[in-house]
């Protein structure tokens, strides 16, 4: 479950020139719903990683064509320049972002697509309010756009599309995004409102090595 669901995935992939047989990796694939959809619709070869053994086990039961692996996104079990597309949906800000980004860039082919959808702080000055929340929520680490863009560019990615889709967040209770049961829902909404928590997707490409 994530804001926007498969609608956002499809919107984002519409900006990529996909050919059947391309290799797609979903980092933080969970039980694999997105990946199953994507390989079926676009005829891609799928790879999914997640840190949760339980989710990977569930994913394996649903589809055997996809290579499901338990791994951290900060240390991907794939060769360099082996993927055409990497999806990171509602996962980027729970990763150790710099390490995960350099791993994804390493794994991507030159010119390969990095597709992200995630939370972000639309009010740069309010992002501090999010940091005050107890640990264990992905909301607490949401960054402003400038910072996300800077991190991607520094990792060697060129952003071609950035689309705000915060309206999807309104339809979605942000309480379900936090696994930490001890978070006061009022505090959570106060912080989210101060930071103007929003949702976006982006499409970036790995810079050519020239």
């Amino acid at each position: 479950m994530r804001p926007g669901g498969l609608t956002i995935t499809e919107q984002a992939l519409a900006h990529c020139d996909l050919q059947s047989g391309m290799r797609v990796l979903d980092v933080g694939c969970g039980a694999g719903a997105t990946l199953r959809h994507v390989i079926a619709v676009y005829g891609l070869m799928g790879f999914g990683v997640d840190v949760s053994a339980e989710l990977i086990a569930r994913a394996r039961q649903t589809n055997s064509q996809v290579e499901w692996m338990r791994a951290r996104s900060e240390s991907l079990p794939f060769a360099s320049e082996s993927m055409d597309v990497i999806l990171s949906e509602c996962t980027l800000c729970i990763f150790e972002i710099d390490t995960a980004l350099s791993e994804c860039v390493r794994t991507l082919n030159y010119g390969g697509y990095f597709v992200v959808s995630d939370l972000y702080a639309r009010n740069e000055n309010g992002a501090e309010a999010l940091r005050q929340l107890p640990r264990g929520t992905c909301i607490g680490t949401a960054m402003p756009k400038t910072q996300i863009v800077e991190k991607l560019e520094r990792a060697g990615l060129q952003i071609s599309v950035w689309q705000d889709c915060s309206e999807k967040l309104k339809e979605f209770s942000i309480c379900t995004l936090t696994t930490a049961a001890q978070v006061d829902p009022f505090d959570l909404h106060i912080a989210a409102a101060k930071a103007k928590l929003g949702y976006y997707f982006l499409v970036a490409r790995k810079n050519n090595h020239r």
């Binding site: 009022f186 909404h189 106060i190 409102a193």
Partner: peptide, 12 residues
């Protein structure tokens, strides 16, 4: 308390 704070934050 908390309700008034949420109201304020959401209202800007």
């Amino acid at each position: 308390g908390k309700m008034a704070e949420v109201e304020k934050a959401l209202e800007d």
